[in-house]
Simulated scan of single mutants.
Amino acid sequence: MNLRDLKYLVALADHRHFGRAAQASFVSQPTLSTQIKKLEEELGVALVERAPRRVMLTPVGRDVAERARGVIAEVDQMVEVARRSRDPEAGSVRLGLFPTLGPYLLPHVLPGVRERFPRLELLLVEEKTDQILQRLRDGRLDAGILALPVHDDQLRVEPLFDEPFVLAAPKSHPIAKHESLHGDDLRDADLLLLEEGHCLRDQALDVCRLAGAGERAGFRATSLETLRQMVAAGVGMTLLPMLAVQPPVPPSSDLALVPFSGDVPHRRIAMVWRRSSAMGDFLERLAAEFKRLPDELLAPPAPKSASKRSRRAD
């Protein structure tokens, strides 16, 4: 048994197709198939169910593949320990971000990261939270930027910042005239939300429960931009995270942003990585760069009256 064959098995478990697994492993399909067969002969068990149109791992095959992931991850950690000892701030870091944060955070932090770590190759992966956590556990990601809470004692959690929410409403809606919102201003309101699987949906539902609001039936968006466009079209209201309404995101003339006052609803953003990671010390320094996000990017829009006074003063 060798590490190469274990990697072939893991690739087959991921792709469920000999051709795609071979392509991902940079070998020919006959080579991968032959090595999997040799692994089965060495272990004395069938690892794969071969059917004309699909490939499935047997129960023992799934167990062996999961254990192989751990072996591969440990070997990768050994290599990383040696490499980081030579040049701690070089090499690559595989970083996962979820879709309602990544496109809005990265333009503000990547220039500083590149300046601070010029030899670093930052490989970015955009996935939903559950996928990022799974890839972290499997060793396919080195770190993730997620919204708390994260319930896993095997992960180190480094809080970065709190991101407030604002209400996005059509300009024609009466609530758009408010300078700010209090908790009961959304009572009995129905908000547009994302589909299942997005952490922003769960966060918005938490706000709805506290405010006495609900979800608008019959519509669930697949992306934050869809939500934004539906609000601008007058379909309804939604909650948007603060970074999603800051430049370089262009403002919409048909959409009003109303901040909350008092106990402002927000989500806490953190960087997480495995406690066993060989690059833990470096990831702490990388997290420090993400913490340098300018405070004004997390500040609510100025109240309308304040904006008017400012323009008159100018």
Rank of each mutant, 00 (worst) to 15 (best):
L141P: 13
D185C: 03
W273L: 00
R86D: 11
V71A: 15
D130N: 14
E66K: 14
P52F: 01
V55P: 00
S28E: 09
A232V: 11
V245S: 11
A211G: 00
G218A: 07
P99Q: 09
R216C: 08
R116Y: 05
R4G: 00
R114G: 00
S261Q: 09
V272K: 02
V60K: 15
D202K: 10
D206Y: 12
E89I: 00
D14K: 12
A51W: 06
L191V: 01
Q134H: 09
E195Q: 15
R62A: 08
R116E: 14
E80D: 13
D14A: 14
S85M: 08
R274T: 08
P303C: 00
L124M: 15
Q203D: 10
M78N: 14
L12N: 05
I132M: 01
S33L: 06
H182F: 10
Q131E: 07
A169R: 06
M56L: 13
P149D: 09
D254E: 10
T226Q: 14
P174Q: 10
I175E: 05
V60Y: 04
L210W: 14
L155K: 03
E163H: 01
L32E: 02
E89C: 03
A213C: 09
R285E: 15
R216K: 13
V27T: 14
M271D: 02
D138T: 06
G197K: 08
E215L: 01
A22D: 05
T129H: 02
A46C: 08
A302M: 10
V60W: 09
A233I: 07
R54Q: 07
L181M: 08
D87A: 06
P159G: 02
W273M: 03
A233M: 13
T58Y: 01
L6K: 06
G112L: 03
E80G: 09
A213R: 11
R83P: 07
A256I: 05
V71Q: 10
L205A: 12
R187T: 14
L227W: 05
A90N: 03
K38E: 03
E115L: 08
A168S: 15
C199V: 07
A278V: 07
E66C: 04
M230P: 04
L181F: 10
R275W: 02
L106F: 06
V27E: 02
S92T: 11
E158I: 09
E215Y: 04
V55M: 01
A168M: 06
L101F: 03
